[in-house]
Simulated scan of single mutants.
Amino acid sequence: MAVPVIVSLLDTDLYKFTMMQEILHHQPETQAEYGFKCRNVPDVPLAGFIAEIDAQLDQLCALRFAEDELAYLGGLRFIKSDFIDFLRLFQLQRHFITVSVPASDPDDIAITIKGPMLHCMLFEIYTLAIVNEVYFRHVDPAAALATGRERLTAKLALLREFAAEPAQCFPFIFYDFGTRRRFSRAWHEEVVATLAREAQPYFRGTSNVLLAMRHGLVPIGTMAHEYLQAFQAFGSRLRDFQRNALEHWVHEYRGDLGIALTDVVGTDAFLRDFDLYFCKLFDGLRHDSGDPYAWGEKALAHYRKMKIDPSAKQLVFSDGLDLPRAFALYRHFAGRAPTSFGIGTDLSNDCGAMPLQIVIKLLYCNGQPVAKVSDSPGKGMCEDVNFLNYLGDVFALP
């Protein structure tokens, strides 16, 4: 078999662990099903890589958490000791994930993850990283790395130019969010190590827990769409699922991890549920779809409506960013609210070849369909049209 893509179970995003801990404590019996989607057309059909993807998944499911990794995780103040005990016994189960060629498209792949949510949710980031790295091994590695290094050098030059601008009252801060879309594990680490060394004081951390541990960085992340989606099937009225999800989060983390994701059923519907209570309890909001300028203005207007000073809250942008876009957003909101920027593909996979736009999303929870609607056409995901229509009626979605 080729060189393993994943060699450590810590090589994933922090929010997988934070969501997993909440599920362990409050919904441990949950059953889930996830599906894969490639939103663009690859240069080389993905179906040709199935054998290697399967072999990489076999290797992944042989891994266990090492004691030094558990010690690092356990040292984060919001991670509880019983969760570490659970992870000490944890091992991904191969029979929960299947890869095949869909009948609808012989060039594509279908990936299904199905089983107990606690034992399935970690598959997402590892699997996306595997698909990416296996796919990009057909690219000339020397040429790709040369291009990547040249472009990374140009990004550092942009940062130096930006540093010459007049200082604002809030600092410019960005993070690496690139694990799921990276060109390769080795290149991702090179990028993060370079930024940690040469992009201070602007570069403040990474979503990747292993790289945070190795390079003395802050691990970044709170919740993803799957967490809020799961509450669509947790027994309460559908209309209340966002409030229930946020309430459970507050009880689990008691003031830590206070950035809420806004676009599971669209920002307008989210803000209708994000009342004064949640405005005070959460530190800020994260943008992941739709026009970021319009989103930020809505967020600031909502805080003002609630009689809360927006300068005390954080706006986190994480949708398709590069440094020029981040600079523009920073300037636009300068002086009104602190901002930060999670940059993914443009850092970890800017090596010349067209990146894959691949995702794995929660489709069913406890046998019921769930949906992500999003603020951007094409970013939503749901297999049940009737449920999608019902969700639209409940939340008055266009």
Rank of each mutant, 00 (worst) to 15 (best):
P219Y: 02
G235Q: 11
S236K: 13
S236P: 06
I220G: 01
S236L: 10
L238A: 03
A233P: 05
A233S: 14
A245H: 04
Y227F: 14
L228M: 15
D240R: 14
Y227R: 08
N244C: 10
N244D: 15
Q229Y: 03
R243P: 07
H225K: 07
F231H: 14
A233N: 13
F234W: 05
A230K: 02
H215L: 09
E226M: 13
P219M: 09
N244M: 15
L228Y: 13
R214G: 01
G221P: 05
T222R: 05
R239Y: 07
R237Y: 12
P219I: 03
P219F: 03
P219R: 02
H225A: 12
R214T: 06
A233K: 01
I220L: 06
F231T: 10
H225M: 12
R239P: 00
G235N: 12
V218H: 08
I220Q: 05
G216Y: 06
G216K: 08
Q242Y: 08
A230S: 14
E226K: 00
A233Q: 09
V218S: 05
A233T: 05
F231Y: 15
P219L: 08
P219N: 02
G216L: 01
E226W: 03
A224F: 06
G235L: 06
Q232W: 11
G221M: 05
E226P: 08
R237F: 06
Q229K: 13
R214V: 06
A230N: 04
G221C: 07
R243W: 01
R237H: 14
G235F: 09
R239H: 11
H225L: 11
A224G: 15
I220D: 11
G235M: 06
I220V: 14
P219H: 04
R243K: 13
A245K: 11
H225I: 06
